[in-house]
Amino acid sequence: MLALQILIDGFAISALYALGATGFTLIFGVSGVLNLSHGAIMVLAAVAAWAAASVLHLGSYSGALLGVAVAVVASFATYFAVVQPIQKSRRIATEEKEIFILTSTLLWGIMIQELIAYFFTNNAKTVLPIVEGVVNIFGERTTKNEIFTAVVCCVSIGLLWLLVNRTRTGKAVLAASMNPRGVTLLGLELGSIYLVVWGIYGILAGIAGVLLGMFLGVSSYSVGPLTASAFSIVVLGGLGSVSGSLIAAFVVGYLETITAYLISPAYRTIPALLLLVAVMYVRPQGLLGRR
């Protein structure tokens, strides 16, 4: 029975991790940017959805939509206010752009986090779930919200796959992630591809944030751990590899769940971190990464 429990709970958590990491890895693939304000954008989406219900008295659907919309706005703001100025700057040497983007997205994330704490305190917030109640799966009482979370994550990732593989814009994005210079040679505007990618990223991070808010709840303290977990999953999977991230998300999600159930919830994240160090040591490019 415990095995079934782990299977169900692990799936929901893993799917959530996968969704959060997909957008993150997509941006890296296309523009080489590691966005360390990721956790802040997720928490912002969840807090916006919470505020919609508690402060503006909107329903749970409108609240969730508002949360995602806020994440998209935050994503574009990150791109235009922080990332683009560095990419275009002539005063920063090319080989140093990476550290500048890392530092400034980190600072940007802290700014968002502090504003959230200032306006809504740093206590945890939980978003009003869209579906409430529980169902029995082979005798295991499972919340409908958990199933909802897993389904939305899988559908979102599926839609993304269709977008990337079946539409013209998507194919351009895919091409850009494989070879940015090649795309410009083909006459495609890299700038507009960046916009599309940051838009997709905003939607994915927003959905992931709102779902996390419904499933477990978030606080401004969650910002750092969320960024770190997305970063770990993406590197574990191999930077820029979406399928690698998906696999890594499930490895980490299940490893954490198994540890929490079988050993102790206190040790939850430790085995995943040790695994990460081990992988870095024997296979530095990650599970599916290209060197």
């Binding site: 709970d9 958590i13 929490a260 159930y261 919830p265 206190a266 939850r268």
Partner: peptide, 16 residues
């Protein structure tokens, strides 16, 4: 049951 104050997912705890 004692758990870390960092805990966000209480599902395993309630199950236990």
């Amino acid at each position: 049951i004692r758990f870390s104050p960092d805990t966000t997912d209480f599902t395993p705890i309630f199950n236990k």
